[in-house]
């Protein structure tokens, strides 16, 4: 037996005799490709973006509850650790957005050849990193400027 999973791949023919079901080759068989990482990263980013959105509800809920709750949330958003979490949420959202746009293009029949997909992968990574950095820096900058203006 070459693969431990083979024990789970025993099936029955319609006449009752046992047969070994065909098994698809798994991850260890393939050479690493960017496209395979970007594919699973889109799924992971979707889950992370959903988790972040659930936390984001705390912000809108605190704003609805009143100034006291809102100041608690502001402690989190003002904390470097909280800001790192927000940056991670932004990264997940931006990548899921970019990969989603690629999926919509593929569904419409564009950029779906192997060559084009391999060309677009690094571009998607660049756009994601660039947009995330610009967003995080921009939002943080605006927040700092606004609170300084209030203080003075």
């Amino acid at each position: 037996m070459q693969d431990v999973r083979e024990a789970l791949y025993v099936g029955q023919r319609s006449d009752g005799t046992l047969t070994r079901r065909p098994m698809s080759p798994h991850l260890q068989v393939y050479r690493f490709r960017l496209s395979m990482f970007l594919s699973i990263a889109n799924r992971a980013a979707g889950v992370a973006a959903a988790g972040g959105s659930a936390l984001g509800l705390c912000w809108i809920n605190a704003a609805a509850k009143g100034p006291k709750s809102f100041s608690k949330v502001q402690k989190v958003t003002g904390n470097p650790l909280g800001q790192l979490l927000l940056a991670g949420w932004a990264l997940a959202l931006v990548y899921h957005f970019v990969a989603g746009l690629r999926h919509l293009a593929w569904d419409s029949g564009y950029r779906f050849d192997k060559k084009e997909i391999n060309e677009d992968g690094p571009v998607a990574v660049g756009v994601t990193v660039g947009t995330t950095l610009a967003l995080v820096a921009g939002i943080l900058g605006v927040a700092i400027c606004r609170s300084r203006r209030k203080a003075s």
């Binding site: 100034p67 939002i139 605006v142």
Partner: peptide, 14 residues
Amino acid sequence: QVFRLAGASQPEVA
């Protein structure tokens, strides 16, 4: 909207 509200106080958000 996040850019508009970054650093805003609760009354401003409300």
